[in-house]
Design a protein around this nucleic acid. Structure first.
Lengths: 113, 113
DNA sequence: TTTATATTCAACCGAATGGTTGATAATAGT
DNA sequence: ACTATTATCAACCATTCGGTTGAATATAAA
């Protein structure tokens, strides 16, 4: 579950257009049409991108009349943040430990074969 | 540059096999062959994944004899972390402000049309 | 009711992904 | 000198991705 969520969130964030859309949405909720204006893309393409963001849980779309109101959902970033925090901390600690153990920066192979 | 780096890092992290490889590497540097063992994948596939991770700056490969020693590079996570931190904080603040301004959770559309 | 607007759907396209296999290169071991 | 091991390369394959266009759907406006 968490794993799959990570897949979707990281994948969604890997596209600069989608990150730009998130930035736009950070300025406040808006509709698909207005969201599409800064990008020289078809409405259908924007809708698809929104689908990806929605599937990742980063954005919600709600029908309001003939428009769809898009909102950002910061909570969905948490999984990714947690993953990065844990791993960065862990890796850094690991490397620090190795370096301390050995005494020189890019520690060579440690295990046997 | 930063943008492109984000593309590569997020894209690299979007694959569970690659995340698992990073986890393996967190236990210490190792060779391509040993890294490939837990995964039921061809060596070539593993090598390709390593290429993606390397291009994202998350991993380095260094020739040592006929083997390649793979190491993790935690620093490459920073761009992604910074992006997530900034945006999560910003978005959350934004939403908090909106909610405070309006008085109810899922604030409706604010601008004119 | 007719017409315009907002959005999605469906089908398609080219490029990139994630995987395979077989050949190749380079180093180690005998 | 041969042989085995380690890894990459090259070509291929199916699937997914990001994009387009045109038709369909639903609501608003005339």
């Amino acid at each position: 579950m968490v794993d799959n969520s990570l897949n979707h969130v990281f994948r969604a964030l890997a596209d600069p257009t989608r990150r730009a859309m998130l930035d736009s949405l950070a300025a406040g909720e808006t509709t698909v049409g207005r969201l599409s204006k800064p990008f020289s893309l078809s409405l259908a393409a924007v809708s698809k991108h929104l689908g990806v963001l929605e599937r990742a849980g980063l954005v919600t779309r709600e029908a309001r009349g003939r428009e769809r109101v898009c909102r950002i959902n910061p909570a969905a970033l948490e999984d990714a943040q947690v993953w990065l925090d844990i791993h960065d901390r862990f890796w850094t600690d690991r490397l620090d430990a190795l370096q301390a153990e050995i005494g020189k920066p890019p520690a060579p192979l440690g295990e046997s074969h």
